[in-house]
Amino acid sequence: MIFQPEAFPFPRWLGPYSPARGNNSGFRIRGGQLGAHVVTDGGREFWTAQQTRGVLDLVQLIKAHWQGGRIVFLPNGFVVKPLQKETERVLIGRVSDALTLNGDGCHVLDFSNLRYLTPGSSWPGPGTIGLESKIRSDGSLTSGWYRPTDYGQEETQEVIAGSNASLLDGFQKARPGENSGRVRITVGGHVITNGDERDGSLQPHYVGRVAPSIFRNWERWIEGR
């Protein structure tokens, strides 16, 4: 992974964003390592990112400013850090190239090489990473987020990706009988969703991929200081 940090002071990020869902959701810096929690048959594991130059630079930057905590990789490569109580978010940098997570044992998830995953199959990685979004009945993706203001909050709803029949097809393989619902757009544009299992539990499934290049013009949500 290649990481390009933003200049300090980091600009405010006013764009697409997903809040934390509990203390174990999303990518986090824990014990000096970047990773994310994965629920497996054996319980919850913290899968860590392969320590490339970019990962080390990102971890070092986070540790220098905040010691640790959660970060959000947006599908266009932006890296966003929520500040205290998530009332403010800053853009800390941009990533490109591959990211690989290593799990316990021999588990490896290389986001640049997921061609073996078929739409509808189980997602073999963390289920709480990425940008929360909604897939609509035409396969388009919308995202909604809020930011606190001095009068309350401002909520934004945006169509972030246009209609996509193959993505909808993948969603329906993951969640038969449904033609809209929540998804997450993860690193590299890979889309996942939680589907019902026979035992009633929710498990992440692979939906498909959208090219990160479609998330254009997101610079407009950067607010410099």
């Binding site: 001095d150 009068y151 309350g152 401002e154 909520e155 934004t156 709803q157 945006e158």
Partner: peptide
């Protein structure tokens, strides 16, 4: 107490900021 309403631009004359909603809370005001 709160209300929600579409957000407008700050310029004059204002226009609608597409997709943006303001939630105005009495406690904040």
């Amino acid at each position: 107490i709160y209300f929600e309403t579409p957000a407008l631009t700050d310029v004059a004359p204002p226009s609608v900021r597409a997709g943006v909603t303001r939630k105005v809370m009495l406690s904040k005001v």
